[in-house]
Every structure is written in structure tokens, then in C-alpha cells.
């Protein structure tokens, strides 16, 4: 990658040469489009951005974007991304994944990433299903979804509420987009990247193959009743409780100190090695 860029980059310049393997009709294409549009709008040099993911269909996105990428292990995208940000605070670090990766296997990392408030942007492409493993219920699947042989009568437990968990855990930026509106996602993403602290963007991203009924989402998504985000967590909690899960826009934004470790060395390697000598 070149270390200096003098030409203005267009969204297309942020796409890699690798062709997505996503199914035609997958909502994740819209997120890819939004990421490239947001990066171009912000004019971020490619070598100053890192995209980190876990495992799943959506987690393939680092391969499709021409910035530094890390396709890690299941549920650990936030852990890897926080390590990267701790070591390289100069990078713009974006984390991406799906609802299974982020809320189940990586659920605990999600809570503590919200709490830690490092300057990261976390995009969760939520299709309420494990797509890569052929369609099992995920944490955000409705309790009565009975289309998987593993849960023939539905998961039977209430679905995970990402916005509520993010708020309760201390996230300082919470928003939701819809893949039917890639430009709307791009706008939220620009705000999320510019936000100092942990920004969480949930994207309703239909799975055309295992959840074809989600094609109807475009008929039911609607903007949040309140156009402006609140900085009051009590009011945000009330909005979340009143929400049907299909509202889009920015919900909550507040400013609190960002956690970033001091990277100044306090000892020498030789001294550390000395401590291990027997």
C-alpha cells in the first residue's frame, strides 16, 4: 500500500479486487457500499484505516475493502480490534460482523467494549440468523421462528436487544440503519467514525437465502420518532423500550472520556527478562 495519496479517492477506490461470495440480494452488499462511501466522504487514506471482523457471512467484509483488514476468529473481532487500537491509536479502526458473532459468541466482548469506550466503530449486520452454517437461530431471532430443524418450535426465548445492552453497558453512540438505504447507513457511519469513543451501529441486513421473509422489512422500517439523538440515558432507555426494533436513525450519543492506554514504555525488555531468570 502506498504511504501517501495525493488523489482524491472515490468510493470505488476503497473496494478490493476480491469479488464477494455473498448471495445475490444479500443486505451486506449495502453495508459494503456504505463503508466505501463513508471512507471516501471522510477522505481517509486507505493505509490509515483497519477493518477487523470475526466469523460469518458479514465478517468476510475486510476482504472486500481495500484498507488494512483482519479476518479473525469467531466472536473475537472486538478483542482483536481493541488490541490494535491500543497499539495503534492513530488508525481508524472499524469492526464488523454479524448478530451471531457479535451477540452470542462475542457477547461478552460486546459488553466490555461498550464499557471500555475505546475510539472504535462497531457495525453489526443483523439478519437474525446464522447464515454461513445454513440457517440456525441467532440471539436476535424471534422466539417463534420455527424454520430451523435445530429449533423446530422456535428458539422459545426472547430475542437479544442490542441497543438496550449497548446502552446498559456504557456505549456512547448507538444507531440503527437498514440495508435498503445504503446512503442512510453511510451517513450514520460517518457520524459513528467521527464520534470520539465506542460507536455501535446495528444494520438490519436481510438474509435473502435463509430468511426470505425479511424482504418485507423495507415495508416496515421507519425512522425513530425523535429525529435527534438524546444524550440522556434514561430517555434513551425509554426510546428503546418503546421501539419495535425497526426504527432507524441515531438513538443515543454522549461524550465521556475515551479509554486509550498510555503506550510509553515504563521498563526495558532486559529488565523484564531479568525477572524471569531463575
Amino acid at each position: 500500500m502506498s504511504s501517501s495519496q495525493t488523489v482524491e479517492l472515490k468510493p470505488k477506490d476503497y473496494k478490493s479486487d476480491i469479488k464477494p461470495v455473498w448471495c445475490p440480494g444479500c443486505g451486506h452488499f449495502a453495508v459494503l457500499s456504505a463503508v466505501t462511501k463513508a471512507l471516501a466522504h471522510l477522505g481517509l487514506p486507505r493505509e490509515e484505516v483497519a477493518l477487523v471482523s470475526g466469523i460469518g457471512c458479514s465478517s468476510r467484509i475486510p476482504a472486500y475493502v481495500s484498507v488494512y483488514g483482519f479476518h479473525g476468529i469467531h466472536g473475537r473481532a472486538l478483542a482483536a480490534a481493541q488490541g490494535l487500537k491500543a497499539a495503534r491509536p492513530d488508525l481508524t479502526v472499524i469492526v464488523a460482523g454479524g448478530d451471531g458473532d457479535g451477540f452470542s459468541i462475542g457477547g461478552n466482548h460486546f459488553i466490555h467494549a461498550c464499557r471500555r469506550n475505546m475510539d472504535l466503530t462497531y457495525i453489526v449486520m443483523d439478519n437474525e440468523v446464522y447464515g454461513m452454517t445454513k440457517g440456525q437461530a441467532s440471539p436476535t431471532t424471534a422466539p417463534d421462528w420455527a424454520k430451523s430443524k435445530l429449533t423446530p418450535h422456535g428458539p422459545g426465548v426472547p430475542s437479544f436487544n442490542p441497543a438496550a445492552i449497548a446502552l446498559a453497558s456504557g456505549a456512547t453512540f448507538i444507531a440503527r440503519g437498514f440495508s435498503g438505504d445504503p446512503n442512510g447507513i453511510a451517513r450514520l457511519l460517518v457520524e459513528a467514525i467521527e464520534h470520539p469513543g465506542f460507536s455501535f451501529l446495528q444494520v438490519l441486513s436481510p438474509c435473502t437465502t435463509f430468511r426470505p421473509e425479511q424482504k418485507e422489512w423495507k415495508k416496515v422500517v421507519h425512522p425513530f420518532a425523535e429525529q435527534e439523538p438524546t444524550a440522556n440515558p434514561v430517555e434513551a432507555a425509554q426510546r428503546i423500550q418503546a421501539d419495535d426494533g425497526m426504527s432507524t436513525g441515531m438513538l443515543y450519543r454522549t461524550l465521556v472520556p475515551v479509554w486509550q492506554p498510555d503506550n510509553v514504555a515504563t521498563t526495558q525488555v532486559e529488565a523484564l527478562e531479568g525477572g524471569f531468570q531463575v
Binding site: P24, G25, C26, G27, G180, P182, N183, A186
Partner: peptide, 26 residues
């Protein structure tokens, strides 16, 4: 012009067909 400020009445530019309208068996 930022992507979201173009003056179309569609979520994307008008000739970009909606992704959800395609399927691999079409």
C-alpha cells in the same frame, strides 16, 4: 455532494436496482 444529499426520491440513485430484488436463481 455527500451521498445522502443527492436529490432523488429513491434510497439509492434511481438506476441502481434494489439489491433485495435479485436472487441467485433468477
Amino acid at each position: 455532494i455527500p451521498p445522502w444529499d443527492f436529490k432523488w426520491s429513491t434510497p439509492e440513485s434511481p438506476e441502481s436496482g434494489a439489491m433485495e430484488e435479485v436472487h441467485y436463481l433468477m
